[in-house]
Design a protein around this nucleic acid. Structure first.
Lengths: 183, 183
DNA sequence: ATTATCTATATCAGGTTGATATATGTAATC
DNA sequence: GATTACATATATCAACCTGATATAGATAAT
């Protein structure tokens, strides 16, 4: 997905600074997508100079100044148009689609070259990690208000539910079948 | 994972050309990792000049010549050493780890901007796609011999089993919950 | 007072991808 | 038998993105 469409999409959920967009990628979106500062800031500048977003400098009492971007009508129109025209391209992407690079899988692929001891450590920590992630997906307690908008999206609820189910399945499989890597 | 370690690991399963390594990424490894020709060929040249692999030019009767690379003792040692020292780095990567960019998820996230008609099309085709992938993972019939080595690895069986289970879970979830995106 | 950490924007070297170039051989179509 | 399309095979490179780094104001901790 084009970085412009993505930034516009996130700004459609409410006005935000570049730093806050990055926080969304580091936080609730971290398991699904990410962009670096090196992409976010130039994209926002570009969107602004083409009037797809407007920008207000906010002076904050307890923090550095920030530039808050708001999507314009023109920007909303561009985003919707891009989404519609590219939608079918994204069907074959995603979990087990074409964008995945799993270093953990590569490690498993070559696990026969690892000492059994190390393989045990790796699998134990992997299961712990998966369980932590599962808890994250199920967590429904208080979160910073600027991220709450995102969590209330129907689509996020759908995806969090999917992720939880997949994690439960995955953890079960690993616990039941990890011995197969050693025999 | 370093591209050198990865190429050595694949060559440890048997001698191969750069083109054949790419075929592994396009075929059985496509859901887990990939490297482009622009990475594979220079890496192989680099490994060769440092004696981690040896190379034989093969003249073929019915196809263009190819360079077949064989891992050396030195190369095998480097690979094992790299795997061991970096193993713990890869635990938190992978399915729902830090390497995923799911354009399908982004589309779902912004699905409220799509006409219902298009959303239906997208979800129908997604389910079809997932079912095709599931069949691929379950397929156990004849395959080209150069890919058979890979399929006989214990680790591949483990991962294919995991992928199948996850796909079944995922398909079930999507079919049961896709209506939530519309209400 | 100094160190560490968080917020906030910005830039850039280095590395990877996707596209393209080149070449040989096979199969299909005309 | 000529032309088109496609698969095998290697190689290179512009364009793009990331991860690192720089800068800077403010708070908290030691």
């Amino acid at each position: 997905m084009q970085k412009e469409t993505l930034c516009l999409g996130l700004l459609s959920l409410g006005p935000r600074s570049g730093y806050e967009i990055k926080q969304m990628f580091e936080g609730p979106l971290s398991d699904f997508y990410s962009l670096s500062f090196g992409t976010i800031y130039p994209t926002l500048n570009n969107l602004q100079s083409n009037k797809y977003v407007s920008c207000k400098q906010h002076t904050q009492s307890k923090k550095p100044d920030k530039k808050v971007y708001t999507i314009t009508k023109k920007g909303l129109a561009l985003m919707k148009s891009n989404l519609l025209s590219d939608a079918t391209e994204y069907i074959r992407s995603g979990n087990f689609g074409d964008q995945i690079k799993s270093e953990f899988f590569l490690l498993i692929l070559f696990s026969k070259y690892l000492p059994n001891e190390m393989l045990d450590t790796v699998m134990n920590e992997r299961v712990l990690y998966l369980k932590q992630k599962l808890e994250q997906f199920k967590y429904d307690g208080p979160i910073p208000s600027e991220l709450a908008t995102l969590r209330n999206e129907k689509s996020i609820k759908f995806v969090r539910g999917l992720a939880s189910t997949l994690f439960e399945t995955g953890i079960g499989y690993v616990e039941k079948n990890r011995h197969l890597l050693k025999e």
